[in-house]
Simulated scan of single mutants.
Amino acid sequence: MDERSNIIFEDRFTVTDVDKDGKKFDRVSRIVAASRELGMHLTLDVASELYPLAEGEAFALAVVRSLTPEKDAAEAAEGMDDDDGATRKVRRELWRAEDQGLANEYDYVMHGKIYKFDDSQKGDNMTTAYFSYGGLLMALRGSYRHLANVVVGENVYLLMRK
């Protein structure tokens, strides 16, 4: 059984800037946000037509390994060795089902990959994890202990709600 938690990172952020370097694309905005609780800094590209965010707005953000609840995800991971591939098909086609797991609880969902982890500034115990969601990028910067579950190359879901 997979001992790792389904949730890689979770926190509440407040938008501090929207498109501070100017708008590069018509339908995409780059937001900069900060969290009070964990002291994390976020830079994120969002589809602004689908999920507009304004300066001063607060939102919850979660990065998870699977949209299925933790118990179901662990059971599915155990059953991935089945010869019939039925478990794999269920997990792959969750987006078609009426109950879409964690996606039902959030307003904005993206699927992507963790592509880089930079801890080159070890003196201040700060690190940055980089994510790509089909070309929309995210950089999450903060204390290493809050990003300890980040694994480069892993597929993840980004979940947001206001």
Rank of each mutant, 00 (worst) to 15 (best):
E3S: 15
E3C: 03
R4T: 11
N6K: 12
N6T: 12
I7R: 13
I7Q: 12
I8L: 10
E10R: 15
R12V: 12
R12D: 10
R12S: 13
F13E: 00
T14M: 12
V15L: 12
V15W: 03
D17S: 11
D17V: 02
D17T: 13
K20M: 13
D21A: 12
K23A: 09
K24E: 13
K24D: 12
D26G: 07
D26H: 10
R27E: 06
R27D: 13
S29K: 02
R30A: 07
R30M: 10
R30F: 04
I31G: 01
V32R: 12
A33P: 02
S35K: 01
S35T: 09
R36T: 10
R36Q: 13
E37Y: 05
E37L: 05
L38Y: 06
L38D: 04
G39E: 03
M40W: 06
L42M: 11
L42A: 01
L42Y: 04
T43C: 06
T43S: 13
L44E: 02
V46G: 00
V46A: 05
S48H: 10
E49Y: 14
Y51Q: 01
P52S: 01
P52V: 03
L53Y: 02
E55L: 05
G56A: 08
E57Q: 14
E57M: 11
A58S: 15
A58L: 03
F59D: 02
L61D: 01
V63H: 02
V64H: 03
V64L: 05
T68W: 10
T68I: 11
K71H: 04
D72P: 05
D72S: 05
D72T: 15
D72F: 07
A73H: 07
A74I: 15
E75A: 14
A76H: 11
G79V: 05
D81G: 04
D84P: 07
T87G: 06
T87L: 14
R88A: 10
R92M: 09
E93A: 11
L94P: 02
W95N: 11
R96Q: 14
E98K: 06
E98R: 14
D99S: 12
Q100M: 15
Q100C: 04
Q100E: 10
A103H: 04
N104S: 05
Y106M: 07
Y108M: 02
Y108E: 00
V109F: 03
H111F: 13
Y115S: 08
Y115Q: 07
K116H: 08
K122V: 05
G123F: 09
G123K: 11
D124M: 05
N125P: 01
N125Q: 08
T127Y: 00
A129T: 06
Y130E: 14
Y130C: 08
F131C: 10
S132T: 15
Y133E: 08
L136R: 14
L136E: 09
L137Q: 13
L137K: 11
L140R: 02
R141M: 15
G142F: 00
G142D: 01
G142P: 00
G142M: 01
G142K: 00
S143P: 04
Y144P: 04
H146K: 12
L147D: 01
A148R: 14
V150A: 05
V150I: 12
V151D: 09
V152E: 14
G153Q: 02
G153D: 03
V156S: 02
V156D: 00
Y157A: 00
Y157T: 00
L158W: 00
M160D: 02
R161K: 15
R161G: 06
